[in-house]
């Protein structure tokens, strides 16, 4: 009768031994190679710190000027540029300037890394069905696995700090660029590709002259999503020691500081809206030729 009421399971002691075994093996691995792995990520650490310091040290009017310039260049909209500058002023006025700079530097570096890894991987996936078959489940895993589950081994390997935080953000934010690069290239009109082939294009010529330019709106939608997901990770990243707007939110949750939490939360939202609108407008302009408008 036992058989029907109790699912067969490993004995308690066996289970404990198994967990212990794996844990100690990973700990051993971490002790052995942790330093090397950390050293491997050192350049990233220095870059991140350098950018953060640069942004914090720069006089605020220059930053505002850059914000205005970049958001105008991206969106070609005075309203958006003005809105961005105003948001920055307000965030600074309420004492969150430094945290905002730290968050911006984290998001920027994370986005650069995601693009640098994501676009080539997406291109490979679009070229080989097998690569697509192998990578798609990994992407699914990256997007569904609870963040804390992979946070743990990262922290065990690299400790607490900016780099593990950055890696966690990247793991979470990477899939959209990869997926949309792959999709964008695969969606390029077959007849246009035939035309490129019929004139004797090589694979490289086709890729850089036809496929990537035509996939750009999709690739850019992927970048946009990646930025949004990176921003969404800011609070969680602060749990493993990443400075920025997430840290006060975390504090606020732990100590029930309502105003602190709200202010920093709103600042994150403001950043998200600015990044989103500017990058979306930019993405739209990339396909202006489709609607018969002149190139800018």
């Amino acid at each position: 009768m036992d058989f029907w009421t109790e699912i067969p399971s490993l004995g308690k002691r066996d289970l404990r031994d198994l967990k212990k075994g794996i844990d100690s093996a990973f700990r051993g691995f971490s002790r052995e190679y942790g330093d090397n792995i950390e050293a491997f990520f050192d350049p990233l650490y220095y870059f991140l710190v350098w950018l953060e310091k640069l942004l914090i040290a720069a006089p605020w009017p220059i930053i505002l000027f850059a914000v205005a310039g970049l958001s105008y260049l991206g969106s070609k909209s005075w309203k958006l540029a003005l809105g961005s500058v105003l948001s920055f002023v307000v965030i600074g006025y309420f004492g969150m300037w430094k945290d905002m700079m730290a968050t911006i530097s984290l998001i920027s570096v994370a986005t650069i890394i995601c693009i640098a890894i994501g676009i080539p991987v997406g291109i490979l996936m679009s070229r080989y069905d097998r690569v697509q078959g192998a990578i798609t489940p990994i992407l699914d895993l990256m997007q569904t696995i609870p963040i804390f589950v992979y946070l743990l081994p990262v922290v065990m390997l690299l400790g607490i700090g900016r780099v593990p935080g950055l890696i966690a953000v990247c793991v979470y934010a990477l899939p959209p660029v990869i997926r949309l690069t792959n999709l964008g290239i695969r969606l390029v009109d077959k007849e246009i590709l035939e035309a490129a082939d019929s004139f004797g294009s090589s694979y490289r010529q086709k890729l850089f002259d036809v496929q990537i330019p035509l996939a750009l709106p999709n690739i850019f939608a992927g970048v946009n999503q990646t930025i949004m997901m990176a921003l969404a990770m800011v609070v969680i990243a602060s749990m493993i020691g990443v400075k920025g707007l997430g840290m006060p939110v975390l504090q606020a949750i732990q100590n029930q500081y309502l105003t602190l939490g709200l202010m920093n939360g709103l600042a994150i939202v403001a950043l998200a809206i600015i990044f989103d609108r500017v990058s979306q407008r930019y993405g739209k302009r990339l396909q202006a030729h489709r609607y018969g408008k002149d190139h800018e």
Binding site: E191, E194, S198, F199, G200, D209, V210, H289, R290
Partner: peptide, 22 residues
């Protein structure tokens, strides 16, 4: 050889034009 052949010997016009939109 095929690429060279396509570049020098043949060219093609398509039903739906297949121009490069960008």
């Amino acid at each position: 050889e095929l690429r060279e052949f396509r570049r020098k010997k043949t060219s093609m016009v398509f039903q739906k034009f297949a121009l490069l939109p960008h």
